[in-house]
Design a protein around this nucleic acid. Structure first.
Lengths: 154, 154
DNA sequence: ATTCTTTTTGAGATGATTTATCAATTTCAA
DNA sequence: TTGAAATTGATAAATCATCTCAAAAAGAAT
């Protein structure tokens, strides 16, 4: 009986953990915490993946008119801080939100463009094996499977 | 005893099989077989992977002066014919020669840029599993492992 | 709070890569 | 050989991302 005691968590600001990661990275590199960086991180974390251009338009309506260059700079900063990962799919660069998972693999439908994300420990273990056998130490990886989803096969 | 009877193969023109693949693709799409396309395929097949720019410079001295636009058009044509595969690595597009292997996976050193190619049947089998579980039929895939090679780790 | 140094921002210029345009040329089937 | 259709090459244009730099903001030290 009694209510679950989650009040402190419920009232925590959104994306507190990621904001902390960002601040730690900034501190370590003599960089500053700005309103723009906060706004962009907040918006970025609401998506699985987005392009700089899309994020620019999404934020254009907000109060200060954020420059496109700032969006690019900040997304690249997130990559360095380990909050995002750049991926070149098609013509524009996609920035993936990897703040809540170790790796990010994709199943991509060549028919409709649908993207399904997955994780597979067995594959990752085999990747480590291959790398070790070749004297490499893996920092990150990218696995994309292209094909037709069930709807597009017909 | 006696010599191995491989004479017909030995005297076959280089890249005959791939040239056949190209011609078949051209025929199916009302496209024409030109001297440029022949030259570009010949040069392209001599590498594992190359950028349009590099191929352009490599061919610049040859008889008909090939335009850069033609190189791009033709490499994209090869992709459609299944002879090449485009990969966005860094800023330029890399065109991989996939004519003699099923798939093309890479170990890429983030220190020196060295690229090691590998194939791993176990990984491919697991990829099929993942795809099937999600209702996908795989057409192709891309696996890139980024890390430091043994020389760059120091 | 004020000052001061350093970093960041925004707007547009710039750079890099790829595609589009179009007249002249080439291919290839009739 | 002829003629319709496709291709080519040169360059313009488009696309995407980074660079430049003066003005603004951040943050530490007064």
């Amino acid at each position: 009986m009694g209510y679950p005691i989650r009040l402190t968590l419920i009232t925590m600001p959104k994306h507190a953990r990621e904001m902390g990661v960002l601040k730690e990275h900034l501190g370590k590199h003599q960089l500053k915490f700005t309103r723009q960086r906060e706004l962009i991180l907040d918006a970025f974390l609401k998506q699985e993946h987005i392009t700089a251009e899309d994020l620019y338009h999404q934020l254009a309506r907000k109060d200060p008119h954020l420059g496109l260059a700032t969006i690019y700079r900040t997304l690249n900063l997130f990559c360095e801080a380990g909050l995002a990962q750049a991926r070149h799919f098609g013509t524009q660069t996609q920035y993936d939100n990897v703040s809540h998972k170790g790796h990010h693999d994709h199943l991509i439908c060549t028919g409709c463009g649908k993207i399904v994300e997955f994780e597979n420990c067995d594959i990752e273990r085999l990747q480590e094996e291959v790398a070790t056998r070749n004297g490499f130490t893996i920092q990150t990886h990218r696995l994309e499977l292209y094909g037709l989803c069930s709807s597009c096969r017909h």
